[in-house]
Every structure is written in structure tokens, then in C-alpha cells.
Simulated assay, not measured.
Amino acid sequence: MIKIWGRASSSNVQALMWAIEELALPHQRQDAGFIYGGNDTPDFLAMNPNGTVPVLQDGENRPIWETGAILRYLAEKYAGDAFWPKDVEERAEVDKWAEWAKINVALKFTAPVFWRVVRTAPSRQDPEGIEQAISVLNGFLAVAETQLGKQSFLVSSNLSLADIQFGHLLYRYFDIEIERTSFPNIESYYRRLSERDGFKKHVAISYDELRVVD
């Protein structure tokens, strides 16, 4: 049995849980972090000295932390060739786009945009800063827009690990109240992702507990 520690409202936990659903892996998840606490206990810190979520333990194996490392572990051990190719060059293509999404899109969206809109009280928000952050984000979304004009998913005609890392961000991107540039290929891609059971179950869910109000 795979065990996961991490709250459902964490975007990193959502990416992990979506992947677990796509791979049909038996699992148990325990809330940890933020209002749920538990991530500063000796037992948790023995698993992850950073005190962050998610943490995954597969059976009696040593715990794994850092979302990207966890996802690659699961893909290597349990996924089929479409999700995580066995061919080293094809796998590098998937891994390249997964890292691109994590480094360039997640880091340009989560704190600069999402936190400023949702996790900041309206009276303390910085509209100009948000607008500038969206402009930076748009440069990377334009890269995805071009890539998604070539095939149904980020790397090929099949969902892969790269789509987990990129796609899980899109629910919040399209849900929050911001001015969005039109990216037709990304919008079509998002609609396809929204039809997947794992996406609906673990990604397209309420984040109200994160919202800060005046």
C-alpha cells in the first residue's frame, strides 16, 4: 500500500494524487500541513526534514519527498511506456517538459499570481504586481500554446508525466479572477484534462481553505 502525507488543497499533492489515480495505484492519503498540522512532529521530520508535503512511502521502502522525485519514482516503477517511455531519448523529452512546467510555469504562477490573488486579502493586493506577474507567465504559456498545437498532449497524443506537472496548474489558472490572454490550444487541452476522472477527483476541487478575506 502506498501512503501519502499531504493536504488535498496543496497543488503539489494534487499533482501526485492525479498521477496515482491515472496509474490506478492502491493508496491511503493522510492530511498534513497548513491548517492540518502534523508536518512539524518528530515522526514527520524523520521522513522529511524539510517539513513539507507531499511525502510518499511505498510499502516498507524509505519515504520519498519532493514532488518531482516522487512522480518519477512512481512512473519508473508503475507506469506504462506512453506515460513514462522506456527509451531514454523519448523519456528525456517527457522529463524535459515536466521540468519546464515545474520550473517555469509553476514558479511563475503559484506565488506570483495565485498567492497574490487568493492567499492575500483584497485590501492588501497589488494589482500592478499581479498584472506584471501574469505578463511574465504569459511568455511561458505561449511556449505551451505552440507545443500543444502539434498534438493533443504536451509531448505526444498520450497523457504523460509532463501533463501532470503542467496540467494540474490549469484548474486554478482558469478559476481565479484574473485577466487572461486567449490561448486556444491550452484552452482545448484544459477541457480534455477536465474530462479525466483523476483530474476531476483530485485537481478540480475547492481551494477555499486557502482564501484570505479582509
Rank of each mutant, 00 (worst) to 15 (best):
W18C: 08
V136H: 07
M47R: 14
W5A: 15
E90V: 00
Q30N: 12
F34I: 10
I35A: 11
R191I: 12
N12T: 03
E22D: 04
A133H: 04
R116W: 00
V213A: 08
E195I: 05
V213W: 00
I64N: 02
V155L: 02
E99W: 03
Y36T: 06
V213C: 08
S10D: 05
Y171T: 10
Q151D: 13
V136L: 09
R192S: 14
A204N: 02
W5H: 09
N158D: 14
N104P: 00
L16Q: 06
K150L: 02
K86C: 06
N185Q: 10
R172C: 09
L71H: 11
V143I: 15
G80H: 09
A142Y: 00
D31E: 15
F153E: 03
P112M: 09
V94Q: 07
A144L: 14
W5E: 07
T52G: 02
K150D: 13
K102L: 09
N61K: 13
A15S: 08
H202M: 07
P42H: 00
N138D: 14
A32F: 09
V143F: 10
T52A: 12
Q151R: 13
A133Q: 05
Y171Q: 04
F109W: 06
L56I: 07
F44T: 10
R29D: 01
D163N: 09
K102T: 13
